[in-house]
Design a protein around this nucleic acid. Structure first.
Lengths: 123, 123
DNA sequence: CTGAATCCGTTTTGATACTG
DNA sequence: CAGTATCAAAACGGATTCAG
């Protein structure tokens, strides 16, 4: 066989690679998941913060800003004291919940394979 | 309702987060995919390089080293001239191909949602 | 051909303290 | 409570050089 031809021409802007970009942002998919688990797909900042052990306030805000710019969530500010802000899934955001739940579902069903992974989470 | 309890206690070492680590490495899942598409789950360095437009030799080698340490691939050196090295999926690696194909399949079926994403790939 | 080892700059992530 | 500023560390990634 002539192995010369790169048949797996994965263009840099192909669909799978675009999806990967969502998962390559450390917190984006987890935020979408938490929002999805809430009635109305909405949660306040503090809820998100407490639902994601390990995230810092800065990364949460930063990631939410990026997600808003991408059209995945919408931001709602209530003019109250003390301040209250909540974030909701947009219709686009709701679509991306699907592959995320698919992936997380596989993970829960295959925890044993993950235990076999020789690499521990960072530490 | 008392909203005080963080019911979505996502421990930092839970299964979904462990899977995310694979996808948060830019090339890991793509390498697994290319290997899976080959008979025997094996490919030589040059094939991988040509199959993944945009990857550099350095990142390929580095990622493959990490994957070997994680137990996802095995490295085989042929004592020939010129040198020949190929990489194969381990049984563990084959398991992780499943969620990857799941995700890529969703991406291919939902390219329209990806087009709607306001954020373009980097450039 | 494979791939290790530099140097270097960019991007991402994160801890901490601070403002309204 | 929500968000910002600052500083630091880590990951990422290209270019180059060297070796088997």
């Amino acid at each position: 066989m002539e192995p010369g031809s790169p048949d797996h021409e994965w263009r840099e802007d192909c669909a799978p690679r675009r999806v990967l970009e969502i998962f390559s942002s450390k917190w984006t998919s987890m935020i979408l998941h938490v929002l999805q688990s809430r009635l109305g797909g909405t949660a306040r900042t503090g809820v998100l913060l407490r639902s994601l052990p390990g995230i810092s306030k800065k990364m949460l805000t930063q990631t939410l800003r990026d997600m808003e710019a991408s059209g995945l969530v919408s931001r709602h500010v209530h003019g109250t004291v003390p301040p209250a802000v909540d974030y909701s899934l947009t219709p686009l955001g709701r679509r991306f919940v699907e592959p995320i739940e698919l992936l997380y579902g596989w993970a829960r069903d295959n925890a044993d394979a993950l235990d076999a992974l020789a690499v521990r989470p960072k530490g």
